[in-house]
Design a protein around this nucleic acid. Structure first.
Lengths: 208, 208
DNA sequence: CTATACAGACCAACCAGTCGGTCTTGGGAG
DNA sequence: CTCCCAAGACCGACTGGTTGGTCTGTATAG
């Protein structure tokens, strides 16, 4: 029976979301979930494993979405649009997971750390790869360093977890629209004028 | 004498940075700092107050920098450039403060919460205000919602705390350059072509 | 009948904070 | 310049409470 397991995860999610992992005790969780210490430790090795499971469900989902986005779309422009769109929407779907994920990721036990980091890096690399490919195919501005640009995109979206609230004055769709607009504005060359000749000489960041 | 107080803060900073606030005990701090419980509680009301002090030093500095930036520069373009530049550099100067700030901000005691949030909001509002003013003066694209745009900028920079390392392959100056470039690219209108007539009809996000 | 699912009393470890006491310092009286 | 003493600086053994986790035992399903 996996029913209690799910119940525990849901309860823990709500409690962690509201009070933070460290302020919630196992006793609190089992009481709220209507079970006991025995029930808890029958399904989880430790409180740390529970934290890991929460992290893993979330990051696995995000990664799968990103993979789907790059498979169903061909051009880098469409791919980055779709990645941002689906990623932004995650912040509406997985509110509690997100809070816990961003708040407590540094406290994930060493035992599980690697798996989480692996998936997180895969996601990061995917974004950077799309930027790179866009540059190679001549669609994106070639003078941008892909890593910094990729991390800028990730930061922009990731930061949502600090300010986006479902009851807030901006819908998730609106935010997704603006974000893709912003990103495409700095990725696509837009200053070449009519002649096709660049108004500024090619410029590479970090030149000495 | 404030020497021990400073010593405690520095030691705590290093320990919190490496292990996280919740994994470091007061005993560890005082042992490492070469003092005692008595010494600690002579200078701080509680472990929570120490966390507050760390937060406050950092956010106060950032806020002061942003205020200086808007005072010494006139045009919104220069202001946003300077805010980003100085803010990005903070991530090089205050590494440990930053880690602790972003990792543990949710655990700051209620007593001190308000003060931190007040300053954090002031900073946020300052960025949004610059965007708004830039739009009013006709320099920035008027179809962007200032809040979302401002938060995008903040997220981009704030996310640095997750990936920027002094030993990394990008210098802080390079990152600052790229970030200001990205931001100006999505803030400034760049698609009007030569005639001055917009190629796309004006478009407002969130239109029903 | 047996293996899985769950119950809950129990424990050892730890931790933030206290408190009575000692040391140091600096300034005023002689 | 010296003595004194008070107040601030610091010490460290101690405590009350909490926490994650264990263990023995029971119920239930197949």
């Amino acid at each position: 029976m996996q029913k209690l397991r799910e119940e525990i995860i849901q309860t823990a999610l709500e409690l962690f979301d509201a009070q933070g992992f460290h302020r919630v005790s196992v006793n609190q969780i089992v009481k709220e979930a209507g079970t006991s210490k025995g029930g808890f430790y029958h399904h989880f090795q430790s409180k740390d494993e529970l934290l890991f499971v929460i992290h893993d469900t979330f990051i696995t989902y995000v990664l799968k979405e990103a993979e789907a986005a790059t498979e169903t779309h061909q051009s880098p422009v469409e791919q980055i649009q779709e990645i941002i769109r689906s990623f932004v929407h995650v912040f509406d779907l997985y509110q509690s997971h997100i809070t816990v994920f961003y708040q407590e990721s540094n406290y994930v036990d060493e035992t599980f750390e690697d798996e989480i980091n692996r998936k997180r890096d895969q996601f990061k690399d995917k974004v950077i790869a799309v930027v790179k490919r866009g540059q190679e195919e001549g669609e994106f501005r070639h003078e941008l360093p892909p890593e910094i640009t990729g991390m800028a995109i990730l930061g922009m979206v990731n930061w949502l977890n600090k300010w986006y609230r479902r009851e807030g004055s901006h819908t998730i769709e609106e935010i997704a629209e603006v974000f893709t607009d912003l990103v495409l504005h700095f990725l696509l060359p837009g200053h070449e004028g009519v002649s096709g000749v660049e108004q500024r000489p090619p410029f590479f960041y970090g030149e000495k």
